[in-house]
């Protein structure tokens, strides 16, 4: 396949298939988890699981009392790379055109310079997180191949996107193909790796809050 043919494929069937795999996989994953079910709680409740669950879903997004340096580092670097990634994804002109072609919706973009900053910050935070994964004995012990694989899958769209916008290394067409493929691989990988936490984090937090909330504790 030539570069042009690849480009047509990744912009056409590639996007279709990866988006379909993402939607199918994520729906599958969430429902599979839900239908595993859990026992009905027969104890007399002291609080509302629903309300506490929703609150935990929200409050776990922030610092919590008694955090240590590891905690601050995790939250700050985590926010930096998550926001860097999401802002770059959602507020770059050319990406908005993609979402527009899917949904018909569009919204104002951020200037390319700002997007460059968010992408670079995202990459920097990801590098920091990776270095820390090796340097921190706790994190190193917990890590498995998926942590490194997912790191690569996350950083690639950011790096190839920057190379593309600044036309570094490869011709535009090749970089565009690589960039779109990196995004498509990420899309496909999300439901089937620990990256699925992008959705299941809300389920996990809800369960946590609901379990504690049943006893009247805001977790």
């Amino acid at each position: 396949m030539t570069g042009v043919e690849l480009l047509i494929w990744v912009r056409g069937p590639g996007l279709q298939l990866s988006l379909a795999a993402f939607i199918l996989g994520m729906t599958y994953r969430i429902l599979q988890t839900y239908f595993l079910g859990r026992a009905k709680n027969l104890a007399e409740p002291r609080g509302s699981p629903w309300i506490h669950g929703m609150k935990t879903m929200w409050w776990r997004s922030f610092f919590h009392p008694g955090m240590t340096i590891r905690g601050y580092f995790t939250i700050i670097s985590g926010y930096t790379f998550h926001l860097g990634f999401i802002i770059t994804l959602l507020f770059f002109d050319q990406h908005i055109e993609l979402f527009k072609s899917w949904t018909g919706l569009s919204w104002p973009a951020l200037p390319p310079l700002v997007i460059t900053v968010t992408a670079v910050l995202g990459i920097a935070a990801l590098v920091a997180v990776l270095v820390d994964r090796f340097a921190d004995p706790v994190r190193y012990l917990l890590s498995d191949y998926q942590d490194y694989l997912c790191w690569v899958l996350t950083v690639l769209p950011l790096v190839t996107g920057l190379l593309l916008v600044y036309k570094i290394w490869l011709p535009y067409t090749s970089l565009l193909v690589v960039h779109i493929i990196s995004f498509e691989i990420l899309l496909v990988a999300i439901p089937f790796t620990k990256l699925s936490h992008v959705f299941t984090i809300f389920i996990a937090r809800w369960y946590n809050g609901a379990i504690a909330g049943y006893k009247g504790v805001q977790s």
Partner: peptide, 22 residues
């Protein structure tokens, strides 16, 4: 004993290690 909450917890863990400090 593996139920929906357990499945959602393991699915979601990102190996950040923050629980160590707790």
């Amino acid at each position: 004993h593996i139920d929906a909450p357990v499945a959602s917890f393991f699915t979601t863990c990102v190996h950040c290690g923050m629980c160590a400090d707790a």
